[in-house]
């Protein structure tokens, strides 16, 4: 077990975005959270990475209670994540992005001024090869296409020291070719022993990739299991196609 969320609640105004969400992510597996739009997947990601403070509930990471930590403190403990809408740092180059990701704490001001630019390219090349981003290191983030930015975002998350990789819709809005190559990247990472937690909207993408699935609806987990179990679970279909809560057996 690498990550465990227990009974997380979060309301915005009167709307319960997360309503008693509980799940556990196992090590060295690819785990997916799926669910319809507005089911609270991204909110849950933001709660885990501390960008949003939950109203109640606890989060354990690597056997340690991390509920009270700040976002950057948790990140230093080893959580990497990507964003659904990749923004990156518009005025920095690919090299600078990855150097920032690889340095594990704030740069020391004095030594930083004396040493000047960091020109180490070895590790950067490795990550770039892994994600298959074929661009010179001095390309600015603004000059990348959407798909390339998506890959750079993934590369940053991989380059940052971590033990859990959280990906928010890694293939949203990308073309089918890139889609399958991202799938291959994730398989490759997993075969190296990475633990991956990803959000995906699209069931087809996750079915033959992941080991375990959590299905979220209305701010809580309504089903979990291996992809085959989920595919045959009537509750899941209902959540996607929409049914009334009272009639459903899934809400017991």
């Amino acid at each position: 077990m690498i990550l465990s969320c227990r009974d997380i609640h979060k309301s915005f105004g009167g709307i319960r975005a997360i309503d008693g969400c509980t799940f556990t992510v196992e090590k060295k597996r690819i785990t997916a959270i799926i669910g319809p739009n507005g089911s609270g997947k991204t909110t849950m990601f933001n709660v885990i990475s501390k960008l949003i403070k939950p109203d109640s509930g606890t989060i354990d990471f690597n056997g340690r209670d991390v509920t009270g930590l700040k976002d950057y403190e948790l990140a230093r403990l080893g959580i990497s994540r990507t964003f659904q809408d990749v923004k990156l740092f518009q005025n920095l180059t690919i090299r600078e992005h990855l150097q920032i990701a690889m340095s594990d704490s704030n740069e020391k001001l004095l030594s930083s001024i004396i040493k000047g630019k960091n020109r180490d390219s070895q590790n950067i090349q490795e990550v770039m090869d892994l994600v298959g981003l074929d661009k010179t290191f001095d390309t600015y983030a603004t000059d990348l296409s959407y798909g390339q930015r998506k890959l750079l975002d993934l590369a940053i998350a991989i380059a940052k020291p971590h033990s859990l990789l959280m990906l928010d819709e890694p293939v949203a809005g990308v073309n089918p070719r890139l889609r399958s190559s991202i799938k291959e990247i994730l398989r490759e990472l997993n075969s190296r022993g990475e633990s991956i937690l990803l959000i995906e909207h699209d069931m087809n993408f996750v079915m033959d990739l992941v080991d375990h699935i959590f299905v979220m609806d209305a701010g809580r987990v309504i089903a979990e299991g291996a992809p085959q179990e989920i595919q045959n679970n009537p509750c899941v279909l209902e959540a996607y196609l929409g049914g009334s809560e009272e009639e459903s057996e899934c809400w017991k």
Partner: peptide
């Protein structure tokens, strides 16, 4: 300063502070 790794962190703060915090920077 602005051309050092520290300076790049400053620029990253300007461009996207949330993303930078998620990378473990205060």
């Amino acid at each position: 300063i602005v051309n050092s790794p520290f300076g790049k962190l400053l620029e990253a703060t300007r461009d996207n502070a949330v993303c930078l915090r998620v990378l473990g920077k205060n």
